[in-house]
Design a protein around this nucleic acid. Structure first.
Lengths: 212, 212
DNA sequence: CGGTCCATTGCGGTAACCCACAATAGCGGC
DNA sequence: GCCGCTATTGTGGGTTACCGCAATGGACCG
């Protein structure tokens, strides 16, 4: 099981129709009668795809979408609408919605869209996990080790690094060895390849990893 | 001058109104009466932003958009439409359009959108130029040098590379030196940092850079 | 106060990198 | 056939990287 499709619509007819449709195609789906109910349950871990009706009692689809993104959810969202609302379509798509479909929809179209959304979700999950693994390793470095690593990636020699940090070459060697061990790289080239794409995404999240 | 705004609309009234509007805000703009006329002139180099009417005589806006992309243009496109056409809005945005605006539009909104589009265009131009510089250097490598470089980035030792390629260590050293010189890196770490983000984008574009 | 973690440094040695000098050999063009 | 480009290899030597062993000193915790 790769994840569940969550259907949020205040019309029970549509909810049930979609749930039945997905079930008949072998896709797991759950229905929610309102945005509030869905958000409160927060089944974030299990969200591979979210289908939101635009106009609902209480929170609207776009409002639910906005809160999901604010909560950090990256799940693909497919909007359903019964009214030709171009501005809403444009703004949600520009905000990262997966698709925007007008009712009445075609069964095969919706199923294909949901499958594509889940496929994208799975792909991103894999990428994110890879990045997170590296990021966690980087955060496990002490402050000094991080300083040394940054300079290693720039291709600086131990001698230069020692000069910049005002410490002995031997000390740089020790840090360098620890960096390679913690990141799991055999040498500076591998380190640079692994870490350099992730570094720019870590801006303010570093914290002092050690004492002194 | 960062580039020109190209307005493609078969209604002269709108063309002129937009051209006047942009001119009054200090933005250079040119009008075209049809998609065919615009495509034929191919002012690709000068396209910082393209405004396309959806429904026109001859080629429709989306058709023009599709041909532009097929021609390799990455310029941001803003669609204008007089009709609430959600499917067209969705498909064009998913295909990479910058925005989709319904008439009648607000003057300030259009100007701000055009400015944002131009800003994105300029930013991408800079990125593209950086990537192209590296890509050109990579293409200047001989076939053998490229094979060696690939393994350098993986952090392999000269000894390992020599084994894989069935050549002497000394030969690997020579290629290694030439790779670093051609790319402009001081060592393998810098090489990996510079080249590894660009490599995946070069799939089929490599060609033999040298003799025998 | 002892234990833990980290930064720091030194010694000595192996292995790897980098380069100048020198030479052989195949391919394509004039 | 000569020239130029590239690939290939060797010799020898200076510079670096990397590692084990050993030790000192500061900060924090129970």
């Amino acid at each position: 099981m790769t994840g569940t499709i969550h259907i949020v619509d205040d019309e029970e007819t549509i909810r049930d129709a979609l749930a039945f449709l997905f079930a008949s195609r072998g896709l797991a789906a759950t229905g929610w009668g309102s945005g509030e109910a869905f958000l409160e349950a927060q089944p974030l871990d299990d969200c591979a795809c979210i289908i939101l009706d635009v106009r609902m009692h209480g929170l609207s689809g776009p409002e639910v979408f906005e809160r999901l993104r604010a909560m950090g959810s990256e799940a693909p969202v497919i909007f359903l609408t019964g009214h030709a609302d171009v501005p809403v379509a444009v703004s949600t798509l520009k905000a990262g919605a997966f698709d925007f479909v007008e009712k009445p929809f075609n069964d095969n179209q919706i199923v294909d869209l949901a499958k594509a959304a889940i496929a994208r979700f799975v792909r991103r999950q894999v990428e994110t996990r890879t990045v997170d693994t590296i990021a966690r390793k980087i955060r496990s470095l002490s402050a000094r080790e991080a300083e040394v690593m940054e300079r290693m990636i720039d291709g600086k020699l131990n001698k230069q690094i020692a000069g910049e940090l005002g410490i002995a070459i031997r000390t740089v060697e020790v840090h360098r060895g620890r960096v390679l061990a913690k990141i799991g790289a055999g040498n500076a080239a591998e380190l640079a390849r692994l870490v350099s794409p992730v570094l720019p995404m870590l801006g303010a999240s570093r914290q002092d990893g050690g004492g002194a």
